[in-house]
Amino acid sequence: MALRRSASLNPTPLTRLRQALQPDWVHTMRARRIAAAALVVLAGVAAIRSDPDGDRTAAVVAARDLAPGITVTPDDVLVENRLATTLPDGSQADLGGVVGATLAGPVRRGEVLTDVRLLGSRLAKAAAGPDARIVPLHLADNAVVELVRTGDVVDILAAADSGSNAVPRVVASDAVVVLVSAKPKSATAANDRVVLVALPAHAANAVAGAALTETVTLTLH
């Protein structure tokens, strides 16, 4: 074995002559085979590596800081190509599914808009379970509205008109605040602010019914 290896490293004059007399096409064929093998290897590497463009997908993002409760306009959002692995669940790819919707919370410029950022059944489900409903409330004390924030967990109390002797009662517990309407610029509209809460369907219907005939307020957890 050692003798054979030594012979390959130190070819005899006859071997050198034979190699020199080989036609050019032999050397060319050998070079082509080497090049073809290299191309096969490169093709395999390219197939294994992911395509950077294929890993990106469209996503709707905020074009500027957005306040909760606003109706999204085309000027508020734009579509960008983002890495698919960085997108959160529920991200929106189409402007049509976002423009005209109401924001359920504040959004920073460049933030990807997801389904739970928009008022709708998915927001209610995320906040209070699969059969959840969203109920709008006008509170008796506007000062309470100033204290409530999106994501707060509250109990809802109702009572007859303040002129009666009715004792307030708890209509529902563990409601999740999903939106507090923005403070109006006009002082005359201060009492028009609305708090949206998410509740299971049965409790939501009870709260909505009480809000029709009674005064309601919240206690914060």
Rank of each mutant, 00 (worst) to 15 (best):
V207Q: 04
A46P: 15
L95D: 06
L3H: 00
M1D: 09
G90P: 02
V154R: 08
V107D: 01
A58E: 11
A62N: 05
V144H: 06
A140T: 07
M29E: 02
G209D: 13
R169Q: 14
V171S: 05
L119E: 03
V178C: 06
V112D: 06
V207N: 11
P130N: 12
H138I: 07
D51H: 01
P88A: 12
A158G: 00
V41M: 12
S6Q: 00
S162V: 05
V195T: 08
H27C: 14
P106C: 01
T114S: 08
L113C: 00
T73S: 15
A201Y: 04
T86Q: 09
V178M: 10
L157F: 15
A38Q: 15
A47Q: 12
I70Y: 11
R16S: 10
V107A: 00
A47E: 12
T114G: 04
L220T: 02
R108V: 06
V112A: 06
N10H: 11
V107N: 00
A84K: 09
T57R: 01
S91Q: 07
R5I: 00
G163Y: 11
A204L: 01
S121T: 11
V144T: 14
T12E: 14
A132C: 03
V153C: 13
N142R: 10
N205D: 10
L147C: 11
I134M: 03
R49A: 10
A201F: 11
S173T: 14
A198E: 08
R4S: 06
N10R: 02
H221T: 13
A104L: 00
L212A: 07
L66I: 04
V135W: 01
I70E: 11
V99A: 09
L113I: 09
A159N: 10
P68K: 13
G110N: 00
R149W: 05
R82S: 04
R56G: 05
G96D: 07
T215E: 15
A190I: 13
M1C: 12
L113W: 03
I34P: 08
L157A: 07
E146I: 09
L39R: 13
P74W: 09
L3F: 07
E214C: 02
A93L: 01
P52S: 00
P11E: 00
A67P: 12
V99F: 00
A166I: 14
V40D: 10
D131N: 06
I70K: 09
A160L: 07
V171H: 10
A124S: 11
L113S: 01
G120Y: 02
A203D: 13
A7L: 03
P184Y: 02
